[in-house]
Structure formats: C-alpha cells, structure tokens
Amino acid sequence: MDRVVDISTDNSRVSADRGFLVVSQADGATGRVPLDDIAAVILHAHGVIWTARVATELAKRSAPLVICDVNHAPVAVLLALEGHHAQGARIRDQWSASRPLSKQLWKRIVSAKITTQAGLLAALGRREVAPLLELARRVRSGDPENLEAQAARKYWPALMGPDFRRDRSEGGANSLLNYGYTVLRACVARSIVAAGLNPSIGLHHENRGNAFALADDLIEPFRPLVDATVLGLIEAGVSEVTPDAKRRLASIIALDLRLDGEVTPLTVAIRRLAHSLVISFRDRRANLAIFDAPDRNSWSRWVGRVPGEVADVERISADVDVRDV
C-alpha cells in the first residue's frame, strides 16, 4: 500500500513516533499514518514544523519529503542517499553508460510520451492526433530535432484550448498540473533511489542545479495521465488546487496501466521502469519497460471521474489528505 500524504494546514507539527507519521494541529486534531505505507510527503502550508526524525525515518524508506511553493511546484526535495544494497555497482554502471545508450533510452521515452499524448487526444476526439503520431514515429536517437517540443506546441492547444500556455508560475490549470506532476515526480524519485540509481545523473536533463534530472527524464511518459485528470477537473469547474482536487490528483498513483500483458498500478509501473533502466545500464542495451498506451475507455474514465469518487481516501484533518493505493 502506497500513500501520498499532503499537509496544507498552516502551523501543523509533523513528527515520527513508534513507526507512525504523526500530524498535530493547534486545535488538538491529530492524525497518524504508518511510515511503512508512505510513498511521499508533500508540504504546502506555511509554518509547518517537522522534526529531523521525520526526515530520517522517511529517508530510511526512500520516501521523499517534497516542499512546494505557492503555485504547488516543488522547490525542494529531501531524499535518501542510499536505497539499495547494490547501489554502488549500479551507480557505476549508470555513470559509465555511453552517450549513444543514453540517447537511445531518451528516444524511447520521448516516443512513448508523444504516443500517449496522441492517445489522449484521440480518446477526446481532438485534432492533431495524426501529426503527433507522425512525430512519435520520427523520433531519432537523442531527439536531435527536439520533436518533444514540437509535439508540445501541437498538444497543449488541442487539449486545453488555443489560449492555453504551459507556465509553472501561473495559476488555474497550470497550478493543477504543477501539483499532479509533483506527486508523480516524488514517486519516480523514490523508485529511482530504491532501484539503486542516482537521481541527479540524467539521460537528457543535465541542468547542474537539478538534483533530480533522472526523475525528470523518467516522468515524461506518465505526464499525460496528469493532463487527463486536470482536464477532467477543469471541465467539472475546478480551477484551483482545492483539497478535493488534491485527492483526485494524488489518486493518479492508483491508476491501472497495462504493462507486458498485465494490469498494474501506476506506482508499480514506475518501479518497473526504474528497474528496467538498471538492466539497460548493466547490459549496455536500451530495453525500457514502458506501459502500453491506454485505450479510449481508460482515458474517458480518467477524464470523467468527479472529485470524491475515488475510494479509500482517508482524511487526517481538514487539510491533511492521504491517498491509499
């Protein structure tokens, strides 16, 4: 069972006690979540006090502590330094991976992302499906033509309308996207560390200030799942990151995907992708386990789901939300 714990009540105190994450508030309300069940903790509120023991206990479990700004984009992430008994050998394989191998891996990621974007547009009956599929087919090693960006310029207007611009600093749909991507990024980072890889050594993203470059690589095929959920929220009249919106976006980690002929939760698909990257580095051959493009019914179900329909949502208190898988 994986849980994303979101803390958005001001002046909360977060501590660890006897195997539980404990959230206390000024009015006396207290919530407890088993530490072993936590996939990530996301902090939004001002004045939250958290103890060093919380950070230590989460790190032992490779569960990231994510700190967000007012637009719900992450500004800091605390993550474990060690996550696997073979970490040293795996990081050496990762570090010594050839540039051609990294480019081949990035090609597969970009092609999968664009194909998934096209699948979402097709399920919605939108335009630009054929051009996106053509771009996905044309992606070459390393994506030297930057077809990922070309696809984005077609995809966002077709999905969100001609006036939409993807901007992390903006509110509305952009804030909802920020939050959903934050949930995904935390899960991907956790799986990378748990697999014994270093999240700062990316395949394509190479910004020296980005400690999670590899997470930003591997998240790409999963982004349209967030986009579909945000579209559903917008169409339901939800334009801000409300508690209900957070629960729905956090529920993304429970979506069922098809991978190698089996149905598996998104969190498991992420772990399998990270492990397949380990094998690719070891064998010096690109062989990524990327989920199959969802069918039309799956897309329609994810877009059409209304806030509150997700089962097994436990609320610690007014604005402390936990999502179970």
Rank of each mutant, 00 (worst) to 15 (best):
V4K: 02
T9K: 14
N11G: 09
D17S: 08
G19P: 01
F20G: 01
S24R: 14
A26I: 15
G28V: 10
P34A: 01
A45D: 06
H46E: 14
G47D: 07
W50S: 11
T51L: 05
A52K: 00
A52R: 03
R53H: 06
R61L: 08
P64Y: 05
C68I: 10
C68P: 00
D69K: 08
L79E: 15
L81Q: 14
A86H: 10
A86D: 15
A89L: 15
R90H: 11
R92T: 15
S98L: 11
W106K: 01
K107R: 14
R108V: 11
A112F: 07
I114E: 00
L121A: 06
A123P: 03
R126A: 07
A136V: 05
A136R: 00
D143L: 00
D143W: 10
L147I: 07
E148H: 02
A149M: 02
A152M: 09
R165W: 01
R168G: 07
G171P: 07
L177S: 05
A186W: 01
V188T: 09
A195M: 03
L203Y: 08
H205Y: 02
H205D: 09
E206M: 15
A211F: 10
F212P: 03
F212Q: 03
D216Q: 06
D216P: 01
T229H: 04
L231V: 07
A236C: 06
G237V: 04
E240A: 13
V241A: 04
R248I: 10
R248Q: 07
L249C: 13
S251Y: 02
S251G: 09
A254Y: 00
L255I: 15
L259E: 12
E262W: 00
T264Y: 10
T267I: 12
T267D: 13
L277Q: 08
I279Q: 15
S280C: 10
A286T: 09
F291E: 05
A293M: 13
P294T: 12
R296C: 08
W299P: 00
R305C: 12
A318P: 10
V322D: 06
V322Y: 02
R323V: 15
